[in-house]
Design a protein around this nucleic acid. Sequence first.
RNA 1: GGACGGGUGGGUGAGUGGCUAAAACCAGCAGACUGUAAAUCUGCCGCUCCUUGCGGGCUACGAAGGUUCGAAUCCUUCCCCGUCCA
Length: 329
Amino acid sequence: MNHSLQRPPAADPLIAILGPTASGKSMLAVFLAQRLGGEVIACDSTQLYRGFDIGTAKPSERERAGIPHHLIDVLDPPEAATAGGYRDMAIRVLEDLRRRRKLPIFTVGTGLYFRALLDGLADVPQRSEELRARLRQSASEHEPGHLRRILRRLDPEAAEKIAAADEQKLIRAIEVCLLARRPISELHRSGRRALEGWHAIKIALQPERDKLYQRIHQRAGKMLDGGWLEEVGRLVASGALEESKALDFIGYRELHRVLDGEMDIEQARMAIQQATRRYAKRQMTWFRRETGVHRFAGFGDDAALQNDVLQVVERELADAARGPEEGSV
RNA sequence: GGACGGGUGGGUGAGUGGCUAAAACCAGCAGACUGUAAAUCUGCCGCUCCUUGCGGGCUACGAAGGUUCGAAUCCUUCCCCGUCCA
């Protein structure tokens, strides 16, 4: 409990680029990697999956420019990505990069995963599909509010914090209480184990909203022109789409409906643009409250911005190399 | 030219005398989120004032008049739109 008081063994730096979708994280990451001897690590819940390429905006070979990229294409569709699973994989990559003396550069789109990596997760049971199925079944057989009532019995404090309509979070909380035989709020209070041995330099991209939305619109068009529908067709044919949670991914669900004839491509395009806008907004909300961040108003592919970021990062790296100073919290 | 149907807040669209600044949904904005997170959920959403209150004022349901204590809702005329008949 008091290891936060003892001086950490010299922490190695890692860089994290936070930004909404289409803000140019990948390009900035490659730029920094080239100049600082780094490698890129994606922190994106969808890019983990093989076969989902166009719609998840994975950087192409050309865009990667010879820089190794990690945590892209590491899961097959039936496997479920989770925050904890991501953390484990990311830690392994970090250890690998440390051994090879490469600077880790994260491109962060999924705020939860990044927080799980840096701050850790409470020591709670993992998900149980069987239990969830039973809870969902039970919820459908009872009046609304059923799950909330169950949770209130198990953990009134948690029930207070979760909205009655938020089935997903209610189920997770009940699941944890049941499996751990302890209230989830108590487990959360007992703390999380933060990442040790690393010091994060956080960069946030904050382009103007209008311009970002414009890019989102254009990118959706480009993705569709680039064969996105065909990609979805292949995933459907191989059965990968059905057995994955990709029906939750923006675009994949819409294009699936196009293939089923329930929607035309033009409607899909607009639905994709809109869903992406909302997603970007949620990302911005999440990143806004991230602390200790160097914020840059612009896109990651802007040369001037890239140089500004490089300067800030170089300064931070130099400070860090001088050793941990007493002022650092 | 005639017969119907219709014009409601950014959009779709309820509302047919007071409980209506006007349902619902969408869009938009703000926010929450410790193992589904590109997910899930919450709040706000005409303008304005303040002593921020189930508060006050103003504007609003195509336009202008009228009826009424009171009208998005009833009446008259006009202007648009749609369908049908000529």
